[in-house]
């Protein structure tokens, strides 16, 4: 077993374990912290795939901005002490069984495929900032500008919704 496989297994175990812990923890603040661990593990995967720009953006945007926003809202509402009321166990079992069977079906159909396709690890310059910026500002400059309009409308929408009427 070489070092790349070892790191892949470690990062995958970290991601899946933290995601499960996110579901299991009762306290919403702890769930958010576990989700941040998941995002760091996914960033580690991006670095392994040599997608450096996305790794940094994932940490800054997801772990940095979005999760802090979640944490802010949870602490603003003071939800961190409230227990969830008694749940409907049957409904929960139905959710777990349906999600688990979806995973089972997808994984078994994946195992049935026999074509071996390799992924480039640690090499390739497609994910470097220079190339991505080049593509973003030549081929994708119109979607980039539309994204700025989307952000503006989201900002105005958040203010309008959050305003006291």
């Amino acid at each position: 077993m070489n070092i790349i496989t070892l790191i892949f297994i470690l990062l995958s175990a970290m991601a899946v374990g933290s995601a499960v812990m996110m579901l299991l923890s009762k306290n919403p603040v702890k769930s958010i912290l576990w989700l941040i661990v998941v995002f760091f593990a996914i960033s580690g995967h991006y670095i392994m795939l040599n997608a450096q720009f996305l790794a940094v953006v994932n940490i800054i945007v997801y772990a940095g901005a979005i999760m802090v926003l979640f944490l802010f809202v949870v602490m603003l509402m003071n939800l961190n002490s409230t227990e969830e009321p008694a749940r409907n166990m049957r409904l929960q079992m139905v959710g777990i069984i349906s999600g688990g069977s979806l995973l089972l079906i997808l994984l078994s159909s994946l195992m049935k495929t026999n074509k071996e396709q390799l992924v480039l690890m640690r090499v390739g310059d497609a994910g470097l900032i220079k190339n991505l910026g080049n593509v973003l500002f030549t081929n994708y400059v119109l979607p980039f500008e539309i994204a700025s309009v989307l952000f503006l409308s989201a900002m105005i929408g958040a203010v309008v919704i959050g305003k006291k009427n």
Binding site: V61, I66, L69, F70, A147, L150, F151, A154, G157, A158
Partner: peptide, 12 residues
């Protein structure tokens, strides 16, 4: 990008 915009509106 879209996820960030979505989170802003959804949390509001």
């Amino acid at each position: 990008v879209v996820a960030a915009a979505e989170v802003a509106v959804g949390l509001a």
